[in-house]
C-alpha cells in the first residue's frame, strides 16, 4: 500500500451482533497502525463519534437486524457511506440469532420475562426508550444495498485484512482457500 493523499473515512457498527467481528478486526494486531496511515475512524464502537459523517468512504456492519433501531442505524450508514460492507455471518444471513425466526416473538418474550425460572412478577419491558424487536431477524442486504460481504463467524483477521487491502488498492476483493469460511 502506498500512502494516499487523503485518508479514507471508515465507520463501523454492531447491530444484532456479538462484537466478535470487531474483535476479529482488531486481531489484525500491529497492522492496525499500517491501516491508520490510510484510514481514519468515523462513528464506531472504537470512537466517541455519535453519528456517521455524511462523507464516509466505507461503512462496516456486523450483526443482522433484530430491532427497529438496527434498521435506523443501517439506513443511516447506507445514506452516508459510499461503500457498505457486511462483516460476518449475522450481517450476511442473520446468523445464529436468526434461529429465533421459527418461534413467535411473543413466545420468546413470554418465556424470557414471564415464565422462565428466576423471574418473579416479570413484565415485558414497554418503555418507549426501548427499540421494538422485529418479528424475525433479517440479513442486512434485505433492507439496504450491500457492496461487499466478508463471510465468517467471525471472519478471520486475515480475511478482513485481505478484503480491506484489496479495496484500498482498488482490487476486487477475493478470499481463497483457508480465508473463505462461514463458520
Amino acid at each position: 500500500m502506498t500512502a494516499p493523499k487523503k485518508k479514507l473515512k471508515v465507520a463501523t457498527t454492531s447491530l444484532a451482533g456479538c462484537f466478535g467481528c470487531h474483535m476479529s478486526f482488531l486481531d489484525i494486531d500491529e497492522r492496525l497502525f499500517t491501516l491508520l496511515e490510510h484510514i481514519e475512524f468515523d462513528r464506531s464502537p472504537l470512537t466517541d463519534i455519535k453519528e456517521v459523517s455524511p462523507d464516509c468512504d466505507i461503512g462496516i456492519i456486523e450483526g443482522g437486524l433484530c430491532n427497529a433501531e438496527n434498521v435506523h442505524v443501517l439506513r443511516d450508514f447506507r445514506k452516508n457511506c459510499k461503500i457498505l460492507i457486511a462483516l460476518g455471518a449475522c450481517a450476511i444471513n442473520g446468523g445464529l440469532p436468526a434461529q429465533r425466526n421459527h418461534l413467535p416473538l411473543t413466545t420468546i418474550l413470554e418465556e424470557v420475562y414471564h415464565t422462565s425460572p428466576g423471574v418473579s412478577n416479570g413484565m415485558i419491558p414497554n418503555d418507549p426508550e426501548l427499540p421494538l424487536p422485529l418479528d424475525q431477524v433479517h440479513p442486512i442486504h434485505e433492507v439496504v444495498k450491500i457492496d461487499y460481504f466478508i463471510p465468517g463467524c467471525p471472519p478471520s483477521a486475515e480475511a478482513i485484512w485481505k478484503v480491506l487491502t484489496d479495496l484500498l488498492a482498488g482490487r476486487e476483493p477475493e478470499l481463497g482457500h483457508g480465508l473463505m469460511h462461514y463458520d
Partner: peptide, 30 residues
C-alpha cells in the same frame, strides 16, 4: 444453513462447493 453451529461444518459438501465457487454471500432473500 447456520454453519457456525452446524456439526457438519468443515466436512460439508454444500459448504465446500460454495467456498470453491467463491460465494461471499447467499445474495437472495432467506
Amino acid at each position: 444453513h447456520f454453519c457456525p453451529s452446524c456439526e457438519k461444518s468443515g466436512n460439508c459438501q454444500l459448504q465446500a462447493t460454495a467456498y470453491h465457487l467463491g460465494m461471499m454471500s447467499p445474495h437472495f432473500d432467506h
